[in-house]
Design a protein around this nucleic acid. Sequence first.
DNA 1: AAGTGGTCTAGACCACGTC
DNA 2: ACGTGGTCTAGACCACTTT
Lengths: 232, 232
Amino acid sequence: MSAIAIKSWQDAEKEILHRINSRLWKPGDNIPNEVELAREFGCARTTVNRALRAIAESGLLERKRKAGTRVAPYPVRKATFSIPIIRREIEDRNQRFSYALIDCNTKNIPTDIRACMQIGADKALHIRALYLADGKPYVFEDRWVNVDEVPEILNVNLAHTNANEWLISNAPYTHGDFTFSAIKANDKTAEIMGSSLGDALFSLNRTTWNGQQAVTSVKLIYQLGYNLHTSM
Amino acid sequence: MSAIAIKSWQDAEKEILHRINSRLWKPGDNIPNEVELAREFGCARTTVNRALRAIAESGLLERKRKAGTRVAPYPVRKATFSIPIIRREIEDRNQRFSYALIDCNTKNIPTDIRACMQIGADKALHIRALYLADGKPYVFEDRWVNVDEVPEILNVNLAHTNANEWLISNAPYTHGDFTFSAIKANDKTAEIMGSSLGDALFSLNRTTWNGQQAVTSVKLIYQLGYNLHTSM
DNA sequence: AAGTGGTCTAGACCACGTC
DNA sequence: ACGTGGTCTAGACCACTTT
């Protein structure tokens, strides 16, 4: 019927998405298998596979060997967001970046940090710093660094080089955990951020590992009004 | 040298990641091209391509035709998070899901919602509802639905069927915008959520589109203590 | 002009999950 | 046992970007 010329996997992807969105294939329905679609589209099975795989990754299709491919009945859509370095985040807003170290020393790890980093050592490097946009507090960083994993950081002058940037370039990680939350500014936070006591602030906790070893665990508290945006 | 047997694209991916993480290939370095790696690994170029493409999608490699592939100097890592239906989110916590419609009627669209939905019509369906976990407020939903795009929703009894679930199954969308932020509970919000005035709450604004047409725009306000978690 | 990644093809075999 | 997706291969051509 419809004389659609499928010449690339993106063409196939568009056509399949169209069939899902137009509800020709409804949530829960099984769709034709790869061989049939390839025949219908007049292309190789590999091409159809690439398109189906891409859509399945976005959560709209569910694929199982033998059972086939079906339209997700309750699609759990996936969105991606980027984790830029703070300097770039600020510069992308056309603001001037600056940085101020608050304090930095090696000390005993509090139990909550120990629990989320799961490291054996008693001590770690604790860094507190402020990142500013146009001279105004943008984000407050409260960080612990596993010096067994990244000993070179002890030779870095953290008053001049910020840990966020240095670590990204010098301490690779294989995986990480991210938690976003809303927190109420306490008196210390309010003072540092120049905001009011009780303000609702956006916060990100991130712990990264290189293989089995924790690299760093950081809590970032953003200025009032910050929001995280993404699209799909 | 290293007699690594590369038999799958995942093997190639692991080997390449190892070379990046061990800093054999440093940030900013160009790495060998696909043909060379295929020869070294003793596999087809397609296999190497799949591995490199996967790593580039995660942000660790940058690829350009002719220029080649290099390790990202300041990797902008990408993380994905899932957008589950609220019922499932609650049931996955082993809590009992329930739902209460607060109000629902067709009325004039406020200017801020009109701006983010970019629709022509004067009126839209406004829904306010509460989703509960074990009988306690879990998330408050304040939603506008474009009835030109999804007229069938007018026939749905929203006292029994929640809009979140109904729309996911019945109103496909091609793309969307997501904004996460922290907000301070005002008196109305505090009353509805059973939290205290001034609490810092986590909030998500989401607008979805089907092609050119806005489908729905929703503000979700989560209970105190909620956080969004993801890992990579 | 030339080098690199991007993709397509046809065929093959494998792995998983259902029957 | 068998049907489906998952992947590999070798070769080919194309598209983009830099030189």
